[in-house]
């Protein structure tokens, strides 16, 4: 059930992300962004219990880790200029300091790629370490560029 929901979500996110280049109304950009970020969070949540050693390594792990890596490549494209207003937690600093934002997104992409490697090997200890590293890059970017959530 949960896996199916994740599949639908990430499928939606991926197919929608190909449309980003086409001109879209801001509201759609924001919805898409939320969907992709939500998908990443859901995949991370699915890996969490394995990373913490609460659930044994299983066959879906490489798929979740790989999905995060693939989604990470889309992050920068999800923030076209002029999408900082409305139902979004994106801070205006993203567009004021675009180079820094791109750097933060690149750090995430790199960490996500390492996560995909660790997940692909189905190595629990490596997965735990890689998850921690990905978490740091999420936090580093969110601290600077996302309005506080608790």
């Amino acid at each position: 059930m949960r896996i199916a929901a994740i599949g639908v979500l990430s499928g939606l996110a991926l197919s929608a992300s190909t449309l980003v280049t086409a001109a879209m109304a801001d509201v759609d950009s924001i919805k898409l962004r939320r969907a992709v970020m939500g998908s990443i969070a859901t995949h991370m949540g699915a890996l969490g219990p394995v990373a913490k050693g609460e659930v044994a390594m299983h066959d879906e792990v490489p798929w979740h880790a790989g999905s995060i890596a693939r989604l990470s490549a889309h992050v920068v494209s999800l923030f076209p200029e002029g999408t900082g207003e409305g139902d979004t937690d994106a801070k205006p600093e993203i567009w004021k300091d675009w180079a820094k934002f791109e750097e933060a997104a690149a750090n995430f992409e790199k960490a996500a790629s390492a996560l995909a490697d660790a997940g692909g090997k189905k190595d629990q200890a490596a997965l735990g370490a890689a998850m921690g590293e990905v978490g740091k890059t999420c936090g580093a970017c969110h601290d600077l560029f996302r309005k506080p959530q608790q």
Partner: peptide, 11 residues
């Protein structure tokens, strides 16, 4: 400070 999805808490 990491939530179950490894996003960080803020504020």
């Amino acid at each position: 400070g990491l939530k179950p999805n490894f996003d960080n808490v803020q504020g």
